[in-house]
Computed example of a mutant assay.
Amino acid sequence: MIFDVQDFQKEVIERSKTKPIVVDFWAAWCGPCRMLSPILEELAEEAKEKWDLAKLNVDEWGEVAIAYGVSGIPDVRIFIGGEEKDRFVGLQPKAAIQSWLEKNLGQEKKKIKWKEAIDLFEQGRFHESFLAFERDQEKPENPQESLICARLLLLANPQKALDVLSPSAGLEDPTLFEAIKFLALLLLGKSTDDWTDGKEKREFMEGLEALKKMDVEKGLSIGIGLLHQNKNMGEGLVLKTVRSLFHYLGPRHPLSLKYSRAFSTAVNI
């Protein structure tokens, strides 16, 4: 089935819990998009309902594109079980896309480590997430799993989060690595010394204190409020902090979805 997205949560996230959904982020003015679309549609027809193709015009659904971190098109993602599993960006030949689909559709479901902690994190229940992670005896076995551990540890124990991080080379999401590393150093008080004391810095530090108390919404709200005053505040420190928080949360997190428009307005005015 091939369809144009009208309700991303219902048609992609919820629907992918019963059938894989491939999402094509595109725009009419994008030449590579117009070349890629027929290939994806042909593959969708050949799949005989094993997966569906959802087409999302980024000009019409800019909020969704921003929330999911789409920075270049065509951007193609596959959602399985309510979650994004993989992506590729740019025009690809049909054979390469077939291999990509086979890789993602053919893998058996593996046991998810720290599932309870991850689920609680995705619900914004950060303290409960940390406690669930502490109860779990599973140990990371590779750099990607170490990155997940650091994400779950960050707010409660930023030093330990730094300690468990492995080198970023070869990671699926190096941007998340850099965001966690930056935020950990920030929470440890190692990035604000050059900012002259004043009202704006005191507000920013109030946001950091909220993060330390696992009140991520307050920290994010304060940061975006400061950006509305001056998007270059703190010589870019506030902007980098808020961007890092969005990367840390991930594009599907309820807080990312709630505050993405306010953030976009703050940095584009």
Rank of each mutant, 00 (worst) to 15 (best):
Met1Pro: 11
Asp4Thr: 14
Gln6Cys: 05
Thr18Met: 08
Thr18Arg: 14
Ile21Trp: 01
Val23His: 08
Asp24Ala: 05
Ile39Ala: 03
Glu42Asn: 13
Leu43Asn: 08
Glu46Met: 04
Lys50His: 03
Ala54Trp: 02
Leu56Ile: 13
Trp61Arg: 07
Gly62Tyr: 00
Glu63Tyr: 00
Val64Phe: 06
Ala65Asn: 03
Pro74Asp: 00
Val76Gly: 00
Gly81Glu: 05
Phe88Gly: 03
Gln92Pro: 01
Ala95Asn: 14
Gln98His: 05
Trp100Ser: 10
Gln107Ile: 08
Lys110Met: 10
Ile118Ser: 08
Gly124Glu: 09
Arg125Pro: 01
Arg125Tyr: 03
Phe126Asn: 01
Glu128Arg: 08
Ser129Lys: 02
Glu134Gly: 01
Arg135Trp: 07
Glu141Ile: 12
Asn142Gln: 03
Ala150Cys: 04
Ala156Val: 00
Ala156Asp: 07
Asn157Ser: 15
Ala161Thr: 08
Leu162His: 06
Val164Met: 01
Ser166Lys: 15
Ala179Trp: 05
Lys181Asn: 14
Lys181Cys: 10
Leu183Ser: 11
Ala184Gln: 06
Ala184Pro: 06
Leu187Ser: 07
Leu187Gly: 07
Gly189Phe: 10
Phe204Lys: 09
Met205Ser: 07
Gly207Lys: 03
Gly207Asn: 08
Leu211Ile: 04
Lys213Ala: 15
Lys218Gly: 00
Gly219Thr: 01
Ile222Gly: 06
His228Val: 03
His228Met: 13
Gln229Ala: 11
Asn230Ser: 14
Lys240Leu: 13
Thr241Leu: 07
Thr241Trp: 04
Pro251Ala: 11
Arg252Asp: 14
His253Leu: 10
Leu257Gly: 04
Ala262Ile: 02
Phe263Ile: 07
Thr265Ala: 13
Asn268Ala: 12
